[in-house]
Design a protein around this nucleic acid. Structure first.
Lengths: 156, 156
DNA sequence: GTTGAAATACGAAGGCC
DNA sequence: GGCCTTCGTATTTCAAC
């Protein structure tokens, strides 16, 4: 199984910024033909490096303007509780963490009342002994993993 | 300025799952022609409801296998420090929060050594008085805002 | 990895409800 | 105003080199 090389990383960075670009312009940016660029991207998809292509939706526009992070404390091992958290649709992310709390979840709701209701449903999960919610006042930024390619890929 | 209606939400949900779908199949899923679906999606982009289209990259494949959340405490107002956080490329998200800490950041690095280096750079930001890092042991899930359409959109 | 050709999808225009 | 159909064009996708 081949590794991700520099050209692959460049393609990934470009596609993280805008996945609607044509393979022709993609190839031109990294010094490849459209066919070769297409082939590389196809292989990145097959290998699971690219997990999918999705639109980025403004949360407030779909009634999810309130963002909060919740530390979920528990009395028992939570490693098998993924589905219990997934059953709460307002939870966008759930991570098992090292530290005093067991699980950290990222929650988006329309209102703080709905946030409170999510906390209630979190308490209802087996083993959950407490929650500590932190409401976000302002999001500085949310961005892709790879840095945007500022200089072009192909110097003379 | 028109609101986002039910059909729009369905389109957004489908495009959050897979933005490579054709407008024809998209339209079929919501009971519209390809042209009408295309028109709606174009307007959603124009209005900023769709902020962009991006590929979802497996972090471990690009040397970002370590995930941590860091609470950044400060002695002064951090509301104007967005660029200072943005200058650290390993920071994927930065949010101003209510509570004892001032800023919550999501960090992805290759190793815990690099995570330590990020903490060092956070301390170097003006006004930062302390950090509290929480390392993620396992990610249960990270998913789009809108629930996946399970039943089809067009019952007989 | 490149080139070239066929199938497909995009994106715009015009008419209809 | 929103939706449908049609058309020209660009893009994808696959073949052979």
């Amino acid at each position: 199984m081949p590794k991700v090389d520099d050209v692959d990383v460049m393609l990934l960075a470009l596609l993280q910024q805008d996945a609607t670009r044509s393979y022709a312009s993609l190839g031109a940016a990294v010094g490849l033909s459209a066919g070769a660029a297409h082939d590389r991207v196809r292989k990145l998809r097959e290998r699971g490096v690219i997990r999918g292509t999705r639109v980025d939706v403004e949360p407030a526009a779909v009634g999810r303007g309130v963002l909060a992070f919740v530390m979920v404390e528990s009395t028992s091992w939570m490693g098998d509780s993924a589905e219990a958290f997934a059953a709460v649709p307002e939870i966008q992310e759930a991570h098992v963490i090292a530290g005093s709390a067991s699980v950290l979840v990222k929650v988006r709701t329309a209102t703080t009342e709905q946030l409170q209701d999510v906390l209630r449903r979190l308490y209802a999960i087996d083993g959950v002994s407490g929650t500590q919610a932190t409401v976000v006042l302002e999001t500085f930024f949310e961005r892709p993993l790879l840095p945007s390619p500022e200089g072009d890929a192909e110097p003379a």
